[in-house]
Simulated assay, not measured.
Amino acid sequence: MRLKLTLSYAGFLMLAGALLLVAVGVFLLRQGWLQTNESGAVRLTPGTLFVRDFAPTAAAVLVFLLVFGLLGGWGLAGRMLAPLDRITRATRTAAAGSLSHRIRLPGRRDEFRELADAFDTMLAQLEAHVAEQQRFAANASHELRTPLAISKTLLDVARADPHRDTGELVDRLHTVNTRAIDLTEALLLLSRAGRRSFTREDVDLSLVAEEAAETLHPLAENHGVTLETSGDIAPTSGSPALLLQLTTNLVHNAIVHNVPEEGPEEGSVRVHTGVRPGSVVLTVENTGERLTPQLVATLTEPFRRGSERVRTDQAGVGLGLAIVKTVTEAHGGTLTLTPRPAGGLRITVELPAASGG
């Protein structure tokens, strides 16, 4: 590219110089250097000799322009392409696995500066994504290894004691296996939502909220929690299955992470849908223990349940709110978690409104 720019610059300079010299030559000829005598015969004037002498000078000028164009063009092209070379080196560094490198191109803002800044932004996002995936893979490996290790231990104990009651062993193995299956299905759902490999349809978020609440109403009764739904029609666009999973996860968490069943107060969960300019909102609010903002900020991370919120009978697999966050982002929405002053949590999901909604 540098050679092409150099040749282009030198060629343009040569062309401009040649046109200028031709214009000078034509000007000299038109000034009457060719004249006629009284009989009408053409004769050469001393000016004609000047024109003949002009040709070698013009050639020398063109040679000078060629040399100047090549040398100057080479230096100018190198200076112009220096930012591109810096970006190329950064690209090769990133391709080798180093995502922490940044170009940080100095100077005024131009096309190269915008390209470098965009590349730095891409590297930062990619680095964060890779770190998140590595952390997620490590957590998933740990979570999946736990039920497998428990199953192995139970089987080893049964093998060592053949007279042991197999009914208890089968029940415990069934519980462990169910947890492993739930975790695997949650991981697959999280991966599907992250890839955004779903077909968009018109969805009324209020109907989705009512369906999730109706499905989980028996669970709320078992936990002594009052479940209420309200709100307006909230049309959005997305996957009905994923949005139902999102709402179900939110309501389920609100039920099981509520006030203790043996507590003096009765717990409650409120599900509300609403419409804002250009968006629809789903809010799930529940009573419960007081939560710190620091703890709330970590609840959407995979496998982060929060020790204060874990119930021994409904601990889950630690992916409920992580799935909610991924589904929300896949639909172009935002997720907000706010601790309630009196205890419990308020979760708001804001999604783009459907076209014409």
Results as ranks from 00 to 15, higher is better:
261 E>Q: 14
357 G>T: 15
12 F>H: 01
157 V>D: 10
32 G>W: 04
224 G>T: 09
88 T>Q: 11
271 V>I: 02
10 A>W: 07
294 Q>H: 04
152 K>R: 13
212 A>C: 04
150 I>A: 13
248 T>L: 00
198 F>Q: 09
141 S>D: 13
295 L>C: 05
289 E>G: 12
264 P>F: 15
34 L>I: 15
303 F>N: 02
286 N>A: 05
155 L>W: 04
3 L>C: 08
330 A>W: 03
238 G>R: 01
131 A>Y: 08
83 P>V: 13
187 L>T: 09
212 A>Q: 10
160 A>D: 09
221 E>A: 01
204 D>F: 14
334 T>I: 07
60 A>W: 07
245 Q>A: 10
40 G>W: 07
124 A>I: 05
198 F>L: 10
34 L>V: 15
19 L>H: 04
200 R>G: 06
241 A>G: 05
253 N>E: 14
63 V>S: 11
341 P>M: 12
87 I>D: 13
340 R>V: 11
223 H>S: 02
107 G>V: 10
334 T>H: 13
205 L>Q: 02
161 D>W: 09
16 A>R: 14
288 G>N: 10
270 R>T: 15
175 T>P: 01
47 G>T: 08
167 G>I: 08
269 V>D: 03
133 Q>N: 05
216 L>N: 01
25 G>Y: 05
174 H>T: 15
143 E>I: 11
265 E>I: 03
42 V>F: 13
348 T>N: 06
140 A>I: 01
334 T>C: 07
154 L>W: 11
45 T>N: 13
344 G>H: 11
259 V>R: 08
206 S>G: 11
227 L>K: 00
171 D>H: 07
103 I>H: 06
36 T>A: 12
270 R>I: 06
113 R>E: 11
326 T>P: 01
240 P>E: 00
6 T>L: 01
102 R>N: 15
287 T>F: 07
60 A>T: 07
245 Q>K: 07
106 P>C: 06
172 R>C: 05
149 A>H: 02
243 L>Q: 02
293 P>W: 11
341 P>L: 09
240 P>Y: 13
250 L>W: 06
147 P>K: 05
247 T>I: 02
71 L>P: 03
20 L>T: 12
354 A>F: 15
322 A>K: 11
230 S>R: 02
135 R>W: 08
162 P>T: 00
301 E>G: 03
208 V>I: 15
145 R>F: 06
29 L>A: 12
281 V>Y: 02
173 L>A: 07
27 F>D: 14
199 T>N: 07
216 L>P: 00
54 F>M: 06
190 L>K: 06
344 G>K: 04
